[in-house]
Computed example of a mutant assay.
Amino acid sequence: MRAPLQKIETSGELPQTADAVVIGGGIVGIFAAYYLARRGLKVALVEKGRVGAEQSSRNWGWCRQQNRDARELPMATRSIDLWQRFGAETGEDTGFRRCGLLYLSNDDTELAGWVRWRDFAKTAGVTTHML
């Protein structure tokens, strides 16, 4: 069951000053604003619609490690760490759950590709099993 979205009431009035302005209240925008504020910056977050309810339905928060491009994998691995730390830092249940991912195939060419990815994943510290 998905966690219900909490409606966040804000003023329609924009702040007169800000050290940083983050446009977009999706997962990336929210975390950018959070970490900038933790560094002591005055942050204005601007979202055209509902916070956490617009583009977030179309991304995965960069958590998926399996079958990632080698250039994306470090970001995905770091993202998992950040999700877990955020919950511990704030005491909030974000709904993030670390679980597995399963791909099925009966195509020899595709399976060979998975073997190559599995071998790469081991060098990157990602646990991958083929059954």
Rank of each mutant, 00 (worst) to 15 (best):
K42W: 05
A53I: 03
L111E: 14
F96W: 06
S105A: 03
G61I: 08
N106G: 15
G40T: 01
S79D: 01
V28W: 09
Q16T: 12
Q84A: 13
A32G: 02
R38P: 11
L73N: 04
L36R: 04
T10A: 12
L41D: 13
M75I: 13
Q6R: 02
W114I: 10
R50L: 02
T123L: 01
S56D: 06
L41E: 14
F96S: 04
A70Y: 14
A76H: 03
L45N: 09
G40W: 05
G95S: 02
K7M: 08
A53R: 03
G29M: 12
Y34M: 09
R38E: 15
E47T: 01
R39C: 07
K48R: 15
R58M: 13
L5I: 09
A33F: 05
F120E: 12
I27S: 02
S57K: 15
L82M: 06
F31Y: 10
Y103S: 15
N59V: 10
M130P: 14
A3R: 07
G29E: 04
V43K: 07
E13Q: 13
L45A: 05
I80G: 07
W62I: 04
N106F: 04
Q65C: 09
E47N: 01
R98W: 07
G26Q: 11
S57P: 05
E54G: 03
R98I: 03
E92N: 07
V51C: 00
T10S: 14
V43L: 06
T123R: 09
Q66F: 03
A88T: 05
G87M: 04
I80A: 10
T10Y: 13
G95A: 00
I8G: 10
R2Y: 09
R71Q: 07
G26F: 00
I80F: 00
G25L: 03
I80L: 14
V126M: 05
R78F: 14
L41C: 08
G91E: 03
S57C: 11
D81C: 11
W83V: 05
A76E: 12
L102R: 15
E110H: 09
R98K: 09
S11P: 13
W114E: 11
I27R: 00
L5V: 05
L101G: 13
T17F: 00
E89Q: 06
G87S: 02
D19C: 03
Q16F: 02
G26W: 00
I23K: 05
K48I: 12
T94G: 00
W114N: 06
I23E: 09
V115D: 15
S56Q: 08
W117Q: 06
V115R: 14
T128F: 10
G25S: 02
K122H: 11
I8C: 06
Q55H: 09
C99G: 15
G61K: 03
A76G: 05
L111T: 10
G25M: 03
R68Q: 04
A70H: 09
G12R: 11
N59I: 14
R116E: 15
R85I: 00
M75D: 12
Y103F: 12
A3S: 07
M130I: 15
R50I: 08
C63E: 12
K7N: 13
Q84C: 12
L131E: 10
Q6W: 01
W117K: 02
S105D: 09
G87N: 02
V115N: 10
C63I: 06
P4F: 01
A124W: 07
E13K: 07
A121Q: 06
E72S: 02
